[in-house]
């Protein structure tokens, strides 16, 4: 039986006294695309930050290719993290560097490759995301969709086995967003990457996901295929997939307390 490439076991995280992740368990298998879906503030981006080692959990384990990155120091987990690509929600390009230098950065930082090799790899990666010839542009000269593509080129610079994308369509118009989804799928097919996408865009889920993990209040409340979710009669799933807003049930006293600063 295939072993999971990522295994999250009972992950718990607090920010101060607030529980953000509440016993997350999730297994992701090689070559699959899993979307982590949920409302704003449900903990999905926090979960992603933990998986890529940017945040440390209060409790629990995160096994990537069998190695528990929560128990390794920075130096020990570097070999694992080098084979992980991350596309940040904000693209996170360095504005003072050209697009080419942004893409080349991980190669210059983490490999002993010679500069001519790095230059050719950078142009190859930009070509793969449809930005051939843009290596000398500055990020400020790019549109939102182009910035996302440049950030994707940087995320795949080291030929990662696993690519994480945090809200790849955020802030993009629907047509550009579909283009980014299609590009992610093209790269997955070509490089046989495992892809984890955090999103709240339903259209994106149906286009790219093999499986969906739905989060609510720091927990994963359901895992299944997009079709499983579409046909589910679970209230929370149905509300999400049918885009039904929360009912306005206001507790008068609680609301008053929150306005006058007496809330717990």
């Amino acid at each position: 039986m295939t072993q999971p490439i990522i295994e999250i076991i009972n992950l718990v995280t607090y920010y101060d006294s607030r529980k953000i992740l509440d016993g997350i368990n999730l297994q992701i298998y090689p070559g699959e695309t899993v979307t982590i879906l949920g409302r704003s503030g449900c903990g999905k981006s926090t979960l992603l930050r933990h998986i890529v080692g940017l945040s440390h959990p209060t409790d629990g384990q995160i096994l990537i290719k069998g190695s528990d990155i929560t128990r390794l120091n920075e130096e020990q987990r570097l070999p694992t993290l080098k084979k992980i690509g991350m596309l940040f929600q904000s693209s996170a390009l360095f504005n003072s560097m050209t697009v080419g230098d942004n893409v080349a950065l991980p190669l210059r930082e983490h490999t002993h490759l010679e500069e001519p090799t790095i230059q050719i790899m950078t142009r190859m990666k930009l070509d793969q995301v449809g930005l051939s010839g843009f290596e000398d542009f500055m990020p400020a000269q790019l549109s939102g969709g182009m910035k996302k593509r440049a950030a994707l080129a940087r995320a795949i610079a080291m030929d990662p086995d696993i690519l994480f994308c945090d809200e790849p369509s955020a802030g993009l118009d629907p047509i550009v967003a579909v283009g980014i989804d299609q590009l992610i799928m093209k790269l997955k097919k070509a490089f046989k990457m495992t892809i984890v996408v955090v999103t709240h865009e339903l259209a994106s889920v149906f286009q790219i996901a093999d499986r969906v993990a739905l989060m609510d209040k720091g927990k994963i409340i359901a895992i299944g295929t997009p079709d499983d979710f579409k046909n589910s009669d679970n209230e929370t799933i149905s509300q999400f997939f049918n885009r039904i807003p929360d009912p306005e049930n206001i507790d008068k006293q609680e609301y008053l307390n929150s306005l006058i600063g007496n809330s717990k």
Partner: peptide
Amino acid sequence: MDSSGIATLVE
């Protein structure tokens, strides 16, 4: 063969 191998051949 990864991208660095291809880049080496291109060079």
